[in-house]
Design a binder for these strands. Structure first.
Lengths: 225, 225
DNA sequence: ACGCTAGGGTGTACGGCGTACACCTGTCAA
DNA sequence: TTGACAGGTGTACGCCGTACACCCTAGCGT
């Protein structure tokens, strides 16, 4: 009848379900139902919920292509943008990745090759170390935004007015780019632009430090004080 | 007997519990028990679990002092570091904050005053906008690290060797600062240094853009290409 | 040919969670 | 005196992850 379960089938079903209905829709029970099987059957192929999530993360991270060749900054930038694309395909992935307490070998491998880009580019291990911390989860393509871009849904105008009065700076900045369509809330941000802006800001700073032969021996990172 | 419950008492108990035993120890049931009350009693003071978490977040964010006066860069830097201290006092807070989908007025107020620092400093709303995105949740003092600094717990040496072979760049970088104590895994990172490094890298880049009268009108953020 | 083993699917059950809903009780205003 | 109402209670429902015992079948060595 039904071809047998397998770890790969379980993980693929879980990822598909999360892509379609969000990570909360992925429970052992719902997943089992989707596979036409009783919940406990899954446990013969993955150790438990945590292992399931780890496996899902591995699939997503595995989608990120290996680095190309070229100048370190361009190579790293390209790779981070590729990672971002994987995360956009699987919007649940950042949240799940952040919930893991220990990296899987797949994720470690990704980090390792990313560090390799820096070292191959001539950065000192010391600088590379700080750079990895400074990039943080952005290296994996996370937006790191606190809240999704303001909802396009219109709000009652009196609420909008009250909000504008209470938080004038927020609305001033939020509407700063709304020059073309004169909406109150603006057309939302260009997430891709914001992401690249942040990445380039960091990589640009790193490049300058590198060119200046910067080292962490009692020197403040950029010009300070 | 027992003085009556109140929203403030509930929230304070929840924060205390989370500080002591982690956010997972905060459930409606355990919280009720700690307050000497039946679970449903809590619902008379907070609308539900989500409202409880929002309230907890508000308490933490409310701990961050308002900005002082001075040059925008120093003021913002000081404030971000103050936010980080609040987050260090409540290690569960970043995770909870990231789980909220909509900012509370308290958080919006924090963001608003932070933006105010930039605008008062003469940055254009346009640049301020991008800066807020680039800082991301770092504005609230998050480390944004994917994983906590490598555990100080020693691992079996053969595992360590295998790991070093599989991920040479990771260990090269991880041990780069381990010059003083010659441990294999290094003494862990100086989280405070790494955090300030990242913040200063970003703020330094922003300052240069501002001085250069940078604008997003079809210009790549730092020097690119 | 036979029984054994082991891998994979099943069924039941437990303890936890958030919370809807009906209920009770004490306080205070009218 | 009465009645509304705020605040605490009790029960119950439907989810969750998963421990544990069970069963069925395929393939193996003898």
């Amino acid at each position: 009848m039904r071809e047998p379960l397998s770890r790969a089938r379980v993980l693929a079903a879980a990822v598909a379900r999360a892509d379609a209905d969000g990570i909360d829709a992925v429970s052992m029970r719902s997943l089992a139902q989707e596979l036409g099987v009783v919940p406990m059957a899954i446990y013969k192929h993955v150790a438990g919920k945590d292992a399931l999530l780890d496996g899902m993360v591995d699939l997503v991270v595995g989608e990120i292509p290996p680095p190309e060749r070229g100048r370190w900054r361009a190579v790293l930038r390209t790779r981070i943008l590729a990672a971002r694309e994987a995360m956009l395909r699987h919007p649940w992935a950042p949240q799940v990745l952040e919930s893991r307490t220990t990296p899987t070998p797949v994720v470690l491998g990704y980090l390792d090759s990313s560090i390799g880009i820096l070292l191959d580019g001539g950065l000192s291990p010391d600088l590379a170390h700080h750079v990895m911390h400074a990039l943080g989860s952005r290296i994996l393509g996370f937006s790191q935004e606190l809240y999704p871009t303001p909802p396009g849904v219109a709000m009652p105008p009196e609420v909008a007015a009250q909000l504008a009065a209470a938080f004038p700076n927020v609305v001033a900045v939020a509407t700063s780019r709304a020059h073309d369509p004169g909406s109150v809330v603006g057309p939302g941000c260009d997430d891709q632009f914001e992401f690249e802006f942040g990445v380039d800001l960091l990589l640009g700073g790193v490049e300058r430090l590198h060119r200046a032969r910067w080292t962490s021996e009692r020197t403040a990172p950029p010009a300070r004080r």
